Computed example of a mutant assay.
Amino acid sequence: MQLGVFTVLFAQQSLEEMLDLVGAHGLNAVELGTGGFPGNAHCPLDELLESETKRQRFLQTIQSRDLRISALSCHGNPLHPQKAVAQEAHSLLEKTIALAERLEVPIVNTFSGCPGDSEGARYPNWPVAPWPNDYQELLDWQWNEKIYPYWTEIGRVAQSRHIKIGLELHGGFSVHTPGTLLRLRERAGEAIGANLDPSHLWWQGIDPVQAIRILGREKAIHHFHAKDTSIDPMNISMHGLTDMQPYSNMVGRAWQFRTVGYGHDLKTWADIMSALRLVGYDDVVSIEHEDGLMSIEEGFGRAVQNLKQVLIREPIGEMWWV
Rank of each mutant, 00 (worst) to 15 (best):
H239K: 12
S160T: 06
H200S: 02
M1I: 01
E119F: 05
N77A: 05
M1T: 04
N28I: 00
G317A: 11
L278Y: 13
R277D: 15
V304Q: 05
H170P: 06
D228W: 05
P124A: 07
A41I: 08
G23N: 14
L276V: 06
T61P: 03
S70C: 05
L201C: 09
N77W: 06
G261P: 05
P246R: 06
E137H: 07
V105M: 02
Q142Y: 06
G155I: 08
G179P: 00
Q159L: 04
V284D: 08
L3P: 00
T268E: 15
A71H: 13
G193E: 03
Y123R: 07
T53E: 14
L59W: 03
E297N: 02
P132W: 15
L293C: 11
V30Y: 02
M273G: 03
F58Y: 15
M18T: 15
S118V: 08
D282M: 03
Q204S: 09
V85D: 05
Q13L: 13
L72R: 12
H200R: 01
D291F: 00
S237Y: 03
E218V: 12
S51G: 09
T242P: 00
D291M: 01
R302L: 12
N28D: 15
V260T: 09
I163H: 10
F6K: 00
E88Q: 14
G263V: 02
W320V: 15
G26N: 11
R313G: 03
C43P: 13
G280N: 09
A270T: 06
P44M: 05
V251E: 14
I312A: 02
D140V: 15
C114T: 13
L27I: 00
S286E: 04
D228F: 02
P130K: 05
Q159G: 05
P208A: 03
D197Q: 09
E218Y: 14
Q136V: 12
R313F: 02
P106R: 09
V128E: 10
E47K: 05
E119K: 13
H176V: 00
G116Q: 11
G205F: 08
D20H: 03
P178T: 08
R187M: 08
I316E: 10
T242H: 14
Y150V: 04
R187K: 15
I69K: 03
N235Q: 15
R122Y: 08
Q82P: 00
W202A: 00
L215M: 13
T53D: 14
Q82A: 11
V105E: 00
Q245D: 12
L49F: 07
N249C: 10
L45R: 07
D228T: 03
D46E: 15
L139E: 15
Y123V: 08
A24N: 11
K308M: 02
T61E: 13
L19E: 08
G205C: 04
Q309T: 12
D291Y: 01
P132R: 14
D207G: 06
I147H: 07
V310Y: 10
N125K: 07
Q87G: 04
L138T: 14
C114G: 03
P178L: 12
K83W: 08
N133W: 11
E31G: 04
L27W: 07
Q305N: 07
E288N: 06
G33Q: 00
T61C: 06
A254D: 07
L201W: 12
